Amino acid sequence: MTSLVPWQQRLSAGTEDTQSEVIRWYQETRHGKAYVPGMIWGTLQTEAYATVILRRVVDFLGIPDDVPAGVAKRMERQQVLYDGEHHYDVILGEQALYTNIGGPHVMSEQMGRLLRDLELPSLTLGIVPATAEMSVLPESGFSLFDGGRAHYELVSSGVDVTDPAELALHHKVFDAFSDTASYGGAAKKLINKALAFWSTA
C-alpha cells in the first residue's frame, strides 16, 4: 500500500507538529536506514543547516512560520543518536557534501559535524562517491523505518510505502548503494575534501 499526503495539508499548522511526528518515527525505530543523495540527513544536520532548510520549506509552501520551533524539534530528534538504543545506516551521495545550504560557514560547520558523528556507535555512515559506478540506477532519497514503512519526501507530498514486496525492493536497492558507498577512513577523506572546499570558498 502507498499513501500520499500533500505537504500543504500536512504542514498546514507549520513545521513543529510534523517534526514531532518524525521524532516518534525515529524513537520507535531501533534499526533505521536512510539514503539521501543530495543533502544532509536531517538527524545529522546542524542547527544552522536545519534552520536554512525549514526556512526554505516555509517560504516555498507558504505555510505558517514557526521555523525556530520546527528546528528545535529537529534537534530533539537527534537524541536517538546518543541514547544507546538505536542504530542507523545512512548513505549520503557525495553531492550532499556540496549542495550549498546557507553558504560556506554553514557548510563548513556541517562538515565538522559529520566528521565528529562519523565515530558514533549508533551510526554507520557511507558516502557514494560522485564517480562511483552504480550497479543500480540512482533513486530519490528514502528512509526505512521499523514496522514496515519506507518514506519519501517529494516536491509536493510526503509518500509512505508499506507493501512488503515493495519494501523488499527498497532494502535491495539500499544494499546495492551500500556496496558502492565509502565507509570509515574513505568516507572521512571525502568529508575532509568537502570541508577544505568550503573553508576556502
Rank of each mutant, 00 (worst) to 15 (best):
T2H: 06
S3T: 07
L4I: 07
W7C: 04
Q9E: 10
T15G: 02
E16I: 02
T18C: 02
W25H: 13
W25Y: 13
E28V: 14
R30C: 05
G32L: 08
K33S: 10
A34T: 08
A34V: 11
Y35Q: 05
V36W: 15
I40Y: 03
I40F: 08
I40G: 00
I40C: 06
L44W: 09
Q45R: 06
Q45L: 10
T46N: 01
Y49L: 04
A50R: 04
T51E: 03
L54N: 05
R55L: 02
V58W: 00
L61Q: 05
L61H: 06
G62I: 07
P64C: 12
D65T: 09
D66C: 07
G70P: 05
M75L: 15
M75P: 02
E76Y: 15
E76P: 09
E76A: 15
Q79R: 12
Q79V: 14
Q79D: 14
L81S: 01
D83H: 12
D83T: 14
D83A: 11
E85N: 08
E85Y: 02
H87V: 14
H87M: 06
Y88F: 15
V90Q: 04
L92I: 13
E94H: 12
N100E: 11
P104Y: 01
H105F: 01
S108M: 02
E109W: 00
E109N: 02
Q110R: 05
Q110W: 04
M111I: 08
G112K: 05
G112D: 08
L115E: 08
T124E: 05
L125Y: 08
L125H: 07
I127H: 09
T131A: 08
A132V: 13
A132I: 09
L137F: 11
L137P: 10
L137T: 12
L137D: 11
P138G: 13
E139W: 11
G141Y: 14
S143M: 15
G148P: 05
G148R: 02
R149W: 01
R149C: 14
R149L: 12
Y152M: 12
L154K: 06
S157G: 00
V159R: 09
V159N: 01
T162C: 07
D163W: 03
P164T: 01
A165T: 00
A168N: 04
V173N: 04
S178H: 14
D179H: 15
D179G: 15
S182M: 11
Y183I: 14
Y183V: 13
G185Y: 07
A186H: 15
K188Q: 13
L190R: 10
I191R: 05
N192H: 06
K193A: 13
A194N: 09
W198Q: 00
S199W: 03
T200E: 03
A201M: 00
